[in-house]
Computed example of a mutant assay.
Amino acid sequence: MGTGQRKDPSQQRSQATVARILSATGQVLRAKGYTGCSTNAIADAAGISKGSVYQYFANKDEIIEVLMDRIMEETTAAFGAQLEQSVAEGTFLADAALQAQFLAVLDEYRDILGSLLNDAPHLALAAHRSVRIEERCRDLLRTYVTLNPSAIGPGVDLDALLLVLTVSYREVGLEYLRRDLRGRRNQLATALYDMTMGGLAGTATRGV
């Protein structure tokens, strides 16, 4: 999917302007939600003219599309680093701590993502935005199982398990944001562990 940007911000000054627009859009979404977000509000928050916004974007939805891609890049980097570390240390099967960290990463963008999921589902976390982090998780788990074949429980179908993992994390993550389930983070993390990592380990344990 294209970014929808009208002007390619190749010059350093243009890149700085686009960065200000995206940052301001995040501020407006956090403060006013999607329904209260407008190009006027974005321009005011960025300290630039509305015309300057239109040099790069046709409307607020195009700005939000680019912002969403940036958020997913940051989310992928943050959770991917945690996952890589847990795989390297051999701790990711130990308990539900990694799953709790996954939900905590989503909480960093809750004010933005929750508003979009509820008020602008046409813009929110479409499947194409989660592909990169899902592929990274699958590759890391496959690598771990290849290096540690005894880690997988007897009779466990790895491909089926990875499919359950991918769908479960995506859908639980969406509901976690949509319904604001922060008060049940640990319980959800444990359920995710039992459904996925617990199956990989050939057992299910409780608690974070």
Rank of each mutant, 00 (worst) to 15 (best):
D180Y: 07
T146D: 10
A120C: 00
A191T: 10
R182S: 15
E108Y: 05
A204M: 14
A201G: 11
A16Y: 01
T35A: 05
L103R: 07
V66W: 09
R132Y: 08
L140P: 14
R185P: 07
T190V: 15
I42E: 03
N59E: 00
G4A: 01
A31S: 15
L98R: 06
L140A: 11
G47V: 02
I64G: 02
C137H: 14
L141E: 03
L117R: 03
I71L: 08
A201F: 11
S38N: 01
M197S: 05
R179S: 13
R30E: 12
A100S: 12
G2Y: 10
I63Q: 04
A43N: 05
R170D: 12
Y54V: 07
L165P: 03
D180M: 09
D119Y: 02
R110S: 12
I21R: 06
N40E: 04
V105I: 13
A81V: 06
Q99N: 15
E175I: 03
Y176E: 03
T190M: 05
L174G: 09
M72E: 11
S115D: 13
R132A: 14
A58Y: 01
Y54T: 14
S168R: 15
I64H: 08
T166F: 05
L177G: 07
I112M: 12
L140N: 04
G47R: 03
G47W: 04
I63L: 02
V105W: 10
Q27Y: 06
M197V: 11
G198F: 11
L147K: 12
T190A: 14
G183Q: 12
T143D: 15
I63F: 08
F102V: 03
D95V: 04
T75I: 14
T143Y: 09
S86E: 06
K60R: 07
T190C: 14
G33D: 02
I63W: 05
A46P: 06
D119L: 04
F92A: 04
M197H: 10
D159Q: 00
L192Q: 11
G47D: 03
A45I: 05
M72D: 15
A94G: 08
N40A: 04
G155Y: 09
E84S: 11
V208E: 12
Q55A: 05
T35W: 02
A124R: 06
R20I: 08
Y144C: 01
L98C: 11
E84L: 09
A78F: 04
G153F: 00
L22A: 08
F79V: 10
R129Y: 06
I112W: 07
A204D: 07
A41L: 01
A77T: 12
T35C: 02
S14V: 00
M195P: 12
V87R: 00
T203V: 11
H122E: 02
V66Y: 06
Q27V: 14
R129V: 13
L106M: 11
G207C: 06
C137G: 15
E134M: 14
A45S: 06
M195N: 09
A31M: 08
D194C: 05
L158S: 00
L93W: 04
R170M: 12
S150T: 14
A88M: 04
R178M: 01
A43D: 03
E108H: 13
L106N: 06
I63C: 02
S150E: 15
S10H: 08
T76R: 06
L161E: 01
C37E: 05
L83K: 00
A204N: 08
D8G: 05
L161Q: 00
